[in-house]
Design a protein around this nucleic acid. Structure first.
Length: 302
DNA sequence: AACTTCTACAACCGCGGGTAG
DNA sequence: GCTACCCGCGGTTGTAGAAGT
């Protein structure tokens, strides 16, 4: 039907808010509540449209907003929820107390998204990027160039420096994920969810009690394949269960709530033991290695 | 010191859902 | 059922400050 934007009305101020305007808005809402946003500016003596007032209040002035840096726990929650919900910022925000959808959206776009890109993970699908990484063509090249197998074998007997070892592990994991994808395996799931734990080593729980590990070499499936499973998981998110589980599992790694025991897929775990996997992805993300690896052309940095 | 480029994030815009008349 | 309105959401833009040259 079409409507004219509320701010088309003549003479209404746009742009950054002044302290005086903020004070007027806060004062009015504290005394009267916001009521109708459309009517509020006039009542509060503000030369703004209602929409602008609502945005200023909900994203900035509201007293229950938590500002400042995101914690690791918050980052991990955002990444996990984004892999499930996509750009449903308000839904994600509902699982992060005192954070606004706008703030989460900005943080995603300026920090987390870039971080995933640096890891060659598509931030929308949370899967390894294949646009410029032609998997089939690149795989032999990757292995040959890195002399990968010998490196791995060597690493079992020789004390390699940490960087080299980390590079080997990183490549190994990438190849394993890629191989799994190529094998038409259902675990072509978002990479963030394909490790035993998620991107930051916390365990997801919404697929509890499912046998995920038929193929001992496959990476566990942590993302629902069917719409039904997806709905289930989203319901759990709505109930904030997933966040609670995360926290529970963090404090109790051997929690019986977790379905992601590692007994059934030892080959993967041979590379990453329990302790290491807990901080595995986080370490990679934060490490100079990640930046180096991702900033250099494949197949592998020297 | 001056200029350019980059980064972070506040704010805006347009769309769609819900609802009252 | 139609229209007008309100509200919330997600994408995008504008801009101030930081970093680089």
């Amino acid at each position: 039907m079409g409507r004219s934007p509320c701010c088309d009305e003549n003479g209404l101020k746009k742009g950054p808010w002044t302290q005086e305007e903020d004070e007027k808005l806060i004062d009015h809402i504290q005394k009267h509540g916001h009521g109708s946003w459309r009517a509020l500016p006039k009542q509060a003596g503000l030369n703004r449209c209602g929409k602008s007032c609502r945005l200023r209040w909900t994203n900035y002035l509201r007293p229950d907003i938590k500002r400042g840096n995101f914690t690791e726990e918050e980052e991990e929650t955002i990444i996990n929820l984004h892999s499930l919900l996509g750009n449903k910022w308000s839904s994600i925000a509902s699982n992060l107390p005192r954070r606004t959808d706008n703030e989460i959206k900005n943080y995603w776009n300026t920090h987390l998204r870039k971080r995933l890109l640096q890891m060659e993970i598509d931030p929308m699908t949370h899967r390894p990027r294949t646009d410029h990484l032609n998997v089939l063509a690149a795989l032999p090249q990757l292995i040959a160039a890195a002399n990968f197998n010998s490196l791995l074998n060597l690493s079992q007997n020789v004390q390699l420096d940490a960087t080299t070892l980390a590079q080997a592990q990183f490549l190994h994991n990438m190849i394993q994920v890629i191989s799994t994808n190529n094998n038409n395996n259902p675990s072509s799931a978002p990479l963030a969810m394909q490790t035993n734990n998620n991107l930051f080593g916390r365990q997801s729980s919404y697929l509890e009690n499912q046998n995920l590990f038929d193929d001992p070499y496959s990476l566990p499936l942590l993302v629902p394949d069917s719409p039904e499973e997806s709905k289930q998981s989203q319901m759990m998110i709505k109930n904030k269960d997933i966040v609670q589980h995360h926290r529970h599992d963090t404090s109790n790694p051997s929690s019986s709530n977790s379905s992601f025991t590692q007994d059934h897929h030892q080959p993967w775990c041979d590379t990453i033991d329990d302790e290491a996997s807990d901080s595995y992805w986080k370490d990679i993300i934060d490490s100079p290695l990640c930046r180096q690896t991702c900033s250099e052309p494949w197949p592998f940095p020297e």
